[in-house]
Amino acid sequence: MDDEDDSRARDVAPEHRWPAVIATLVALACYALLPSVVPALERYLVVGVCLLMLVALIIYNPHRLSRESRWSRWAEFALAMLILVVNQVAFVETIVRLLNRHGDGADILLASLQVWVTNVIAFALVFWTMDRGGPVVRVTRPRHEIPLADFRFPQDEDQDTVEEVARGSSRSLDWVPNYIDYFYSSLSNSMAFSATDAMPLTHRAKLLMALESFSGFVLLALVIARAVSLIG
């Protein structure tokens, strides 16, 4: 890409903060209300820590993600990873309960839904924070300075198609993905058990998508088995 295109990257509007914030709040609510053997106090402590991190990040970038420091970069990633890790613990617990048929069937099915929804949001947050240096780097640096992509989106290769599609490509519009794009990719990966939108390019992206697909498949298979047993 030539210098003119690189300078044009600076005209890309920073991403809105609130889609990721709303998704994070939904994930934390699902985790806090999850029927679990983990004491409520410990779950509320995790939620409290996450909320404090989220508030600090909102104060730093209240409306658009226009600036970044070392602490905000690490806090953004740590918040996503913390939600992901605690939800994997809840996932394992839910699997054990499904296998052992412990507890009320409706509660376990509700818990499975909460874990699945949180999983979709948490993986999307991780993808969003790690790909191409994160949401701030993607719009504030020239493309030749952006770290290598972890995911390839359809817009990244639409420049050679029909005009009305090509105009929205990464090359023509200087398009970069935002949280909604990563959320959709996470959702489709969790439902189809394979990458159907953004294709993983790096080992870390492939391993994360594999983990999400595997957990989604196991959870769905056991939920269906449990539902069949309840109907029977």
Results as ranks from 00 to 15, higher is better:
residue 3 D to H: 13
residue 4 E to G: 07
residue 4 E to P: 07
residue 6 D to Q: 15
residue 6 D to T: 09
residue 8 R to F: 11
residue 16 H to F: 00
residue 22 I to H: 07
residue 23 A to L: 12
residue 24 T to P: 15
residue 27 A to R: 01
residue 28 L to R: 03
residue 30 C to Y: 15
residue 31 Y to V: 10
residue 34 L to N: 05
residue 36 S to G: 02
residue 38 V to E: 05
residue 38 V to M: 15
residue 39 P to K: 12
residue 41 L to W: 00
residue 43 R to S: 13
residue 43 R to V: 06
residue 53 M to I: 10
residue 53 M to F: 15
residue 57 L to N: 08
residue 62 P to D: 08
residue 62 P to H: 11
residue 65 L to A: 08
residue 66 S to V: 08
residue 68 E to H: 02
residue 71 W to K: 00
residue 74 W to V: 15
residue 74 W to F: 15
residue 75 A to Y: 07
residue 75 A to F: 09
residue 81 M to T: 08
residue 81 M to G: 12
residue 84 L to Y: 02
residue 84 L to P: 12
residue 88 Q to M: 07
residue 90 A to F: 07
residue 91 F to A: 12
residue 91 F to K: 08
residue 92 V to G: 10
residue 96 V to I: 14
residue 98 L to V: 01
residue 98 L to T: 02
residue 101 R to G: 14
residue 103 G to V: 04
residue 105 G to N: 02
residue 106 A to I: 03
residue 113 L to N: 01
residue 113 L to F: 14
residue 113 L to C: 02
residue 114 Q to G: 05
residue 117 V to P: 08
residue 118 T to L: 07
residue 120 V to W: 07
residue 125 L to A: 09
residue 129 T to I: 09
residue 130 M to C: 14
residue 133 G to R: 07
residue 134 G to Y: 09
residue 134 G to N: 03
residue 135 P to I: 13
residue 136 V to P: 04
residue 137 V to F: 01
residue 141 R to N: 09
residue 142 P to D: 00
residue 148 L to H: 13
residue 152 R to C: 06
residue 153 F to E: 05
residue 153 F to W: 08
residue 153 F to K: 04
residue 154 P to L: 07
residue 157 E to D: 03
residue 163 E to N: 01
residue 164 E to T: 12
residue 165 V to Q: 07
residue 167 R to Q: 14
residue 169 S to G: 08
residue 169 S to R: 10
residue 170 S to V: 06
residue 170 S to P: 01
residue 173 L to W: 12
residue 174 D to H: 15
residue 174 D to G: 12
residue 180 I to P: 11
residue 191 M to H: 01
residue 200 P to T: 13
residue 202 T to F: 05
residue 204 R to H: 09
residue 205 A to H: 10
residue 207 L to V: 03
residue 207 L to R: 02
residue 212 E to A: 15
residue 215 S to Y: 00
residue 216 G to S: 12
residue 217 F to H: 06
residue 217 F to M: 05
residue 220 L to D: 02
residue 221 A to L: 14
residue 227 A to L: 04
residue 228 V to Y: 14
residue 232 G to C: 10
